[in-house]
Amino acid sequence: MSRAAIYRLLAVAVFLVAIFWFIPFLIDVTGRWNFYYTLTSVALLSVASAGVWLTFYIGRINIGQGAFALIGAYVSAILVTKAGISFWYSLPLAGLFAGLVAVLIGLPILRLKGVYFAMITLVLTEVVRLAALALPITNGAKGIVSIPLPSELSVFDITIIPDFSTIENPKLAFYYTACALMVICFAAMYRIVNSRLGQLCRSMQQNEELAASVGVNIAYLRVIVFAISSFLGGVGGAMFGAIAQSVYPSSFVVKDSIDFMLNCFLGGLGYVFGPMLGTLTLYFGWDLLFELGKYQLLVYSSVLILLILVLPNGLLSIRLNRFRRLRS
């Protein structure tokens, strides 16, 4: 095993220990229980952002993740409240449904490129919100409320995940679930990026026509990638709905879609773990600025603009530059 691989494994181990043991330990000691909610949100938002990042990877600017998160949240909520299906089954179903919608919508709109694709995905977010308001099954502006907490998941009478309503601390349970989701998601992302599919994606990002001319089936590939991306958005949204125990048409709006995109940009588009870092930075930055009251948005947006002026290629580009300098 090469030295780089060992370092990588060590880093992953440290990261896992940090999120599953150290952070709960710290919160336990300091007693700041509200941090769980913040970190759970970060983990779930980074899952949805990872989807956006994947569409960036094939050279498309996706500002429609809010739409798929909303679809996922509604599908899960409807399955749990109306059909009585366990939340744990509704979670993948929500993702699959979002993926299916993505295939249907993606077939026409993925032919668009650059700014055109960005515009239509942005409009898509708004349209899904309007659809949620208009359709009878989504209960309009009132939304779906008092969704029960996730129930027990057992295989052959062996409890894998206990009923959340019987746990004394559902916040901690949600935190673990969200972190597990995030870890699985980013492991899968890492695997995708370093697979044949990832290489094909990179070829598409650089030049679609050239890729097509050497035999890459780009029409098929971009729909697949868009479906994976939306699957992640749907899963993230469904989990969010379960935590809030309610879904409204305004649960995910255009601002959220733009935030997902900003998370990816800020973390850096060239790095798989960019969305995670970007989400953490943006979410915590926004929360920290809460003390400033009405100046919150002003300071937040100014910092954002300054960041893009100073680091036009994302946060992770700092670290990489230093590495290169050390090596040379």
Partner: peptide, 19 residues
């Protein structure tokens, strides 16, 4: 390096103007 950066900037400016 990428032309998409202008979109991040545009979104930032939208927030700034809102503020």
């Amino acid at each position: 390096a990428r032309e998409e950066s202008t979109m991040l900037l545009a979104a930032g400016i939208a927030f700034l103007l809102d503020a």
